[in-house]
């Protein structure tokens, strides 16, 4: 008697007589293990005959790796140039303090960028009002229309004050609109709330807001927290702290 794998393969390859097929199909109905193995092997067959997907994977792999190699070569050249620059800066220590002041002023610009928009909803028709408002807000946010986006995020918060996502994106809108005091308030509040997914980002953006306002002690305090609590932005925070000191 052949094993169940042979049996399944014969069926999948149309190598059975009609009587064998009927017998096999009957066994499928009554034997869950056989059914499980059959479904797996059928899916594998589907997957390995997807020539187009296999080809697309190969193309994408090629593109992604090619695009990464070229910057690496450039990176090598930049590293060499950077090494020379470091040398020049070291021997020119006398000018360093003045440069540091300029650097502090440009830290915000170097490290800030608006947090990417998240959006997309299955179907608006069956969504609640809050979700529809979020959708509008993200449409504006995605188009860099931060004034309008802020209006919608505020409407969400009026309906649901606990919506941390809306509050976080509103704070980014306020930074973009140069309403730094408002941004600071929203972000400080988000940090207090703590148990949400934007907590680390809120710390980071608040530090940047302080940098922009030239409140360096406050910025330093938050950045130290970013480092101590091993947040995602720790490497950047460490660099900024070095520059501040």
């Amino acid at each position: 008697m052949e094993n169940k794998f042979d049996w399944i393969e014969k069926y999948l390859m149309n190598e059975m007589s009609v009587r064998e097929q009927i017998e096999f199909e009957e066994s499928l109905r009554t034997n869950p293990d056989l059914m499980k193995e059959f479904l797996l092997r059928r899916r594998i067959n589907d997957a390995i005959t997807e020539d187009d997907i296999l080809n697309l994977r190969q193309n994408l792999n090629h593109i992604i790796n090619l695009e990464t190699e070229e910057p690496n070569k450039r990176l090598y050249i930049y590293s060499a140039v950077a090494a020379i620059l470091v040398f020049v800066i070291v021997v020119s220590g006398i000018f360093l303090n003045r440069e540091k002041q300029v650097e502090k002023n440009s830290l915000f610009a170097s490290y800030y960028s608006a947090y990417p928009a998240m959006m997309s909803f299955r179907s608006l028709s069956d969504q609640n009002d809050t979700t529809k408002l979020m959708y509008e807000a993200f449409n504006f946010y995605d188009e860099n229309e931060y004034d309008s986006a802020a209006v919608y995020f505020k409407m969400v918060l009026e309906k649901d004050a606990t919506n941390t996502m809306s509050q976080f994106y509103l704070s980014v809108c306020e930074i973009e609109n140069n309403n730094l005091i408002e941004a600071e308030e929203y972000l400080s509040d988000l940090i207090q709330k703590k148990n949400h997914i934007f907590w680390e980002q809120s710390n980071w953006y608040l530090a940047l807001v302080y940098l922009k306002q030239n409140e360096l002690d406050s910025a330093e305090s938050i950045l130290n927290k970013v480092v101590q609590e091993n947040m995602t932005q720790k490497p950047d925070a460490e660099i900024i702290l070095k520059k501040l000191n």
Binding site: M118, S120, R122, S123, M165, I197
Partner: peptide
Amino acid sequence: EQLDVYLEYEEIPD
């Protein structure tokens, strides 16, 4: 669990 709540907003169009 927290992520699943978060993903309620993440439902992608199709």
